[in-house]
Amino acid sequence: MRLSLTFATASSLLVLLASCVGPPASAPAPTRAARARPAPAPRPAPAPSPSPTPASAPAPATQVAASTAWADRPLTPGNWSYRAEQGGSIARFGPPAQPLLTLRCDLASQRVVLTRYGAGQGAMVIRTSYGAVSWPATAQGGAQPALVAARAASDAVLDQMAYSRGKIAVDAPGLAPLVVPAWAEIARVVEDCRA
């Protein structure tokens, strides 16, 4: 008991001793002569010498042309139309008599078929505000030649086409580039095919 009382007393004394610290030392008060003298004006910093800014590495030419040029193109004249059909639906862009581009839902295979009318060859490049994707396409001859690409209805690029900011582009070798508005007809066909 006596030991704990001694310990408590010693602890209290240490706390009191620690609190007996005086105020911090302050700087000496300036003399009368120092107060009368104005402080020297600060010198202006020397002007920095211009240093050449390092040039950033240019983007590859194919990437620049692919990503910026299409967004500046005007829209191709025409409108989208939508029609439900037996076994799916179809969205057409261009004049009603002869569309330039169609998206057709084939419910049986759950595939969306993109058709670009005209005598083209090779892959179709789909450009959206999300990026560019190349789709393999098959050339079809006959009275109305076309390039045809079929994709699974679950393909994420179909969503990118439906929700692109303002427009999408469809390019194919041998055909004039198309820049079409991203209207609701695209999303309707894709959703029909996913049902």
Rank of each mutant, 00 (worst) to 15 (best):
G142I: 00
P96W: 00
S129L: 04
L107I: 09
G141A: 14
A108I: 05
T138S: 10
A137C: 06
A119N: 13
Q98P: 06
V125S: 08
L101R: 04
P136C: 03
A132V: 04
A97F: 06
G118H: 03
Y117W: 09
V112E: 06
P95A: 15
G122V: 00
D106F: 10
A119E: 14
A143Q: 13
M124K: 00
G118Q: 05
G141C: 07
L107P: 04
G118R: 04
G131D: 07
Q110H: 15
C105G: 04
R111F: 14
W135L: 12
G122C: 07
T128W: 11
S134W: 07
T115R: 14
M124I: 07
R116L: 09
D106L: 12
L101D: 00
V133G: 03
L114K: 01
T138E: 13
D106Q: 13
R104Q: 15
M124C: 00
L103P: 13
W135F: 10
R104F: 08
Y130H: 10
I126V: 15
A143C: 05
R116T: 01
P95V: 08
A137L: 00
S134K: 10
L101K: 00
L100A: 14
L114C: 02
Y117P: 11
A139L: 06
T115S: 15
P95Q: 13
P136R: 13
G122W: 02
A123M: 03
L107Q: 12
V112C: 04
L107F: 06
G118V: 03
A108C: 02
L114D: 04
C105K: 00
S129G: 09
W135A: 06
R116H: 12
A123L: 00
P96A: 09
G120C: 03
S109N: 15
A137N: 05
R127K: 10
L107S: 15
Q98C: 04
G120E: 02
C105H: 02
W135T: 02
R116S: 05
